[in-house]
Computed example of a mutant assay.
Amino acid sequence: MPWSLLFWLLAPSLAFVVVLALVPGGEPSPRRRAVQARLRAGVAGQLDRVAARVRHGRSVPPPDPFDALHVQLRLGIVTQHLQQLEADPHAWARAERIIASQLAYDALLADACRLAGVEVFPRAKGDPWERMREEVELAARGWTW
């Protein structure tokens, strides 16, 4: 008898909660959106790690630090070369040399992203938005050049 009484008292409240959950509400608060975004990012990171383990059959080994250092040095050299080209208005075939240097810089950025674990999206060559995204991601991971 007491269990049936408890059931008849809790069943309507549970049904009410389910109905309220199905009713669309207003915009969630900024705090709730931030928590949801953090949870989504955490779940996505876990899924990426699981997918990498499934693909490779084991966890991905960390990159060699000397490879990362080599790529950082090359990025610095190419960046300095690009700055010199942009500063010299009388350079011969300046536009072609700048484009070639930017493509080399993009290739080095892709190598750096591979070493740092940043995803490189397939975009057109020389896409400035993708270049900026990769630079920001690398800087967030502590890369300097």
Score class of each variant (00 low, 15 high):
Leu138Asp: 02
Arg74Ser: 13
Asp48Ile: 01
Leu20Glu: 12
Val120Met: 02
Trp92Asn: 05
Ile99Gln: 11
Thr144Gln: 14
Phe7Leu: 15
Pro63Arg: 10
Arg131Ser: 07
Pro63Asn: 07
Val71Phe: 02
Ala52Gly: 04
Leu138Gly: 00
Ser29Lys: 11
Gly26Lys: 09
Leu6Tyr: 00
Leu39Ala: 14
Ala11Pro: 01
Arg38Asp: 12
Thr79Phe: 01
Thr144Asn: 07
Gln84Val: 15
Leu6Gln: 04
Arg32Thr: 08
Asp48Pro: 00
Trp143Val: 11
Arg40Val: 02
Ala44His: 05
Asp48Gly: 08
Glu86His: 10
Glu135Met: 15
Glu96Pro: 00
Ala124Asp: 14
Ala100Trp: 06
Ala100Pro: 02
Glu130Ala: 08
Gly76Asp: 12
Asp111Gly: 05
Leu14Gln: 08
Leu85Lys: 04
Ala140Asp: 12
Glu134Asp: 04
Ala11Ser: 15
Ala104Ile: 03
Leu82Asp: 01
Pro63Cys: 11
Gly57Pro: 07
Glu134Ile: 01
Asp67Gly: 02
Arg97Cys: 05
Glu130Tyr: 01
Val43Asn: 00
Asp64Lys: 06
Ala34Gln: 15
Arg141Thr: 07
Leu9His: 03
Ala116Ile: 03
Pro65Val: 13
Ser101Arg: 11
Val35Thr: 12
Phe121Ile: 09
Leu5Trp: 02
Arg94Tyr: 08
Pro30Trp: 08
Leu47His: 05
Leu5Ser: 01
Val17Ala: 14
Phe7Ile: 06
Gln36Leu: 15
Val78Met: 05
Glu119Tyr: 05
Asp67Met: 13
Ser4Leu: 12
His56Gly: 13
Ala140Thr: 04
Leu108Ile: 06
Gln36Asn: 11
Leu82Met: 10
Ala124Phe: 07
Glu134Gly: 00
Asp111Ile: 02
Arg114Ile: 00
Leu9Thr: 10
Leu103Gln: 11
Gly42Thr: 14
Ile77Arg: 06
Ser59Tyr: 08
Arg31Ala: 15
Ser4Asn: 06
Leu138Glu: 04
Ala51Leu: 10
Asp48Glu: 13
Val54His: 07
Glu134Pro: 00
Val120Cys: 10
Arg141Val: 09
Arg40Tyr: 02
Ala11Thr: 15
Pro62Ile: 05
Ser4Val: 05
Val43Cys: 01
Gly26Arg: 08
Phe16Ala: 10
